[in-house]
């Protein structure tokens, strides 16, 4: 039975093979294999410097990988060129990366909202500039996305007048407006005051109920446990242990994973 070809819904929507990234002489990712299937919610955890943010940033090419392959819906990203001496290099066209980034959305730790645009203009921007939608249609769609994240009353407010939690929800709406096939969250609550973390996490959970495919880098282990269908523990640029939330948090098999979980939950209530 194991020889049966996977059905299309089982085929990974996003996949990396031996993904590597170096900054100068320092190798941050040392060969990551990852399969993300439709509807997966993957939490990536690990200590600082383990490469978890870099991994996320390589998946939508905010950083260009220095080795390995990334596939989006089965298609390899980048063009492989073979030099005369047989060595191969990969080049990426801006056009291709723009399309990948539109399909693989990202929410940042620092929100990165455009301060000179109101909430609704932030959410409309991609629809108008990238998708070339008429303004009226973009406005309606943006209002809908802001309603989804509970900000119907803040459409014309500028980011400077919003709380951190509200800004992050606008950023989530901005990403959702592009209809991404995969959504990446890079420590979405790390720069928030503790009492604002909840509203953002609740918003992310409602997306989980919609069956969205998501990857989340986080320090909120309790949230990762509730959120994730799969958990990846990164250590020193490699996948050290992977499994369900139950396996990783309740019954980690490897010593380093156990120690990390224990360290991270030392002062939890």
């Amino acid at each position: 039975m194991s020889e049966i070809a996977p059905s299309t819904t089982d085929a990974p929507i996003l996949r990396s093979e031996n993904l590597r990234k170096s900054f100068g002489p320092i190798e941050v990712l040392k060969g990551i294999d990852l399969d993300v299937k439709r509807g997966d919610r993957i939490a990536i955890i690990g200590g600082s410097g383990s490469g978890k943010s870099t991994l996320l940033r390589c998946l939508n090419f905010m950083e260009l990988p220095t080795g390995g392959k990334v596939f989006l819906e089965g298609e390899r990203i980048g063009t492989v060129r073979t030099a005369r001496d047989g060595s191969q290099s990969v080049t990426y066209s801006e056009r291709e990366l723009m399309s990948v980034r539109r399909r693989v959305g990202m929410v940042f730790q620092q929100f990165n909202l455009f301060p000179h645009m109101s909430s609704i203009e932030n959410v409309m921007e991609g629809l108008v500039t990238v998708m070339r939608r008429p303004k009226s249609e973009a406005r309606a769609r943006a209002a809908h996305e802001l309603e989804r994240v509970g900000l119907s009353d803040k459409l014309d407010v500028y980011p400077g007048r919003l709380s951190g939690g509200q800004q992050q929800r606008v950023a989530i709406a901005r990403a959702l407006a592009m209809d991404p096939e995969v959504l990446l969250f890079d420590e979405p609550t790390s720069s928030l005051d503790p009492e604002l973390v909840g509203e953002v996490l609740r918003t992310i959970l409602t997306l989980a109920e919609d069956g969205r495919t998501m990857l989340l880098v986080t320090h909120e282990l309790g949230f990762a446990y509730r959120f994730a269908t799969h958990v990846i523990y990164l250590y020193d640029g490699v996948v050290h242990e992977t499994g369900t939330g139950e396996q990783i948090f309740r019954n980690p098999q490897k010593e380093k994973t156990r120690a990390f979980i224990a360290r991270s939950s030392e002062f939890s209530l």
Binding site: M62, M98, S99, R101, G105, E125, A175
Partner: peptide
């Protein structure tokens, strides 16, 4: 982060420069 915020929704460098 402003460049990244724009690039993350698929904007080109030129559009990012002009609009953001």
């Amino acid at each position: 982060g402003q460049w990244e915020g724009a690039m993350a929704i698929g904007m080109s460098r030129a559009d990012t420069f002009r609009r953001v």
